[in-house]
């Protein structure tokens, strides 16, 4: 029995990956929930918007690398991030101008907007594959680890190592900054307040002189920034592949619904709930359990509830449970 090693193994294989993944999910789900709150539809193109923004970051990163620009131990992608966000903002505003604005003016039913977003999804998906191709792209450089497993073992003398990748640490730091800024913006600035007012009651907001087109524009800008951030951090942590980003749509929606659609705080909590359950249910606990229990009880099997191929199933089951027992989500978002 060795509780300390068990704790380190738990931190290494569960805590750290789930924290990073949860931050990425939270950023993505925030985008989904903001679109839902302000524009009032579920944006199926969100995963592909994220892929588009990340693609822009990757291309700018390659440009910088070819110039020999680097950011010391940090990945060059961080320098490219502002440019990627700008490109993504331009793209998103373009789609709004060309596609969504027409339907907004007509006041169509939300489900029509969802179908329209499906069309945008196709176009974006095709564009991304056309420009960068469907393959895996790695663009992380700089130091690979903040703490590598071997250094940790040498420092502490424990059997188990704790490795923290730069990408993971960056993810958490950047996500905290982005979320803090977003909440400050929504709660303290005039534009942010008008966004919340518009989300709560459209007619009242219009009566008090809020310009809806401006609110919508600011929302798209924020969503583009969040999507690019989430995509780049995910890509730094794992790798960039357009199809994977498309598939992230499901955990995003799961996180946003679990937290309560339209509620930013809910999206963050939902992101972590989904991430931790995915990692914990698909992790083989054998190592942790072996350290944590007396020798006689050591397990023979992997002590894995579900194979990792079923991680989508986990977010889906949580989604279903929430839909059945609490359709408005944990933080009482909008629901009809």
């Amino acid at each position: 029995m060795d509780l300390l090693n068990a704790l380190v193994a738990f931190a290494n294989f569960v805590m750290v990956p789930a924290l990073a993944y949860g931050s990425q999910l939270a950023l993505g789900a925030l985008g989904v929930t903001l679109i839902y709150g302000i524009l009032r539809f579920s944006n199926f193109a969100h995963g592909d918007t994220m892929a588009f923004g990340t693609m822009a970051v990757v291309l700018v990163t390659w440009l910088f690398q070819s110039w020999g620009v680097s950011f010391g131990p940090l990945p060059t992608a961080l320098l490219a991030l502002p440019f990627g966000i700008l490109i993504c903002m331009g793209f998103v505003l373009g789609t709004d101008r060309l596609v969504y604005r027409f339907y907004r003016a007509q006041k169509v039913k939300p489900v029509v907007l969802v179908i329209v977003s499906m069309g945008v999804m196709f176009v974006t998906n095709g564009l991304v594959r056309f420009i960068i191709g469907p393959d895996d792209q790695r663009f992380a450089d700089g130091e690979r680890f903040l703490i590598s497993a071997r250094d940790f073992k040498e420092m502490t003398g424990l059997q188990e190592g704790l490795a923290i990748k730069t990408g993971q640490a960056l993810t958490v730091v950047v996500a905290v900054i982005a979320v803090a800024w977003l909440f400050w913006f929504l709660n303290r600035t005039r534009t942010g307040k008008s966004m919340r007012a518009y989300s709560d009651n459209e007619d009242l907001a219009l009566l008090s002189g809020i310009n809806p087109e401006r609110v919508v524009m600011v929302t798209w800008l924020i969503v583009a920034a969040l999507a690019t951030l989430a995509g780049t951090l995910y890509g730094l942590d794992k790798s960039f592949k357009p199809f994977t980003y498309f598939q992230l749509l499901l955990p995003f929606f799961a996180a946003a619904i679990v937290g309560g659609l339209g509620s930013p705080l809910g999206a963050i909590v939902g992101g972590f709930v989904i991430a931790f359950s995915e990692v914990m249910i698909t992790y083989a606990w054998k190592k942790v359990v072996t350290y944590a229990v007396p020798e006689r009880w050591e397990p023979d099997s992997l002590v894995q509830l579900l194979s990792t191929d079923y991680k989508f199933a986990v977010s889906f089951v949580i989604l279903l449970v929430v839909l059945i027992f609490r359709p408005t989500g944990l933080f009482s978002g909008k629901s009809v």
């Binding site: 969802v114 749509l249 889906f316």
Partner: peptide, 13 residues
């Protein structure tokens, strides 16, 4: 929208 997301999920599963 919930039906849409639920069906999207069941297909993946």
């Amino acid at each position: 929208d919930y039906l849409a997301i639920a069906t999207l999920g069941i297909a993946e599963i």
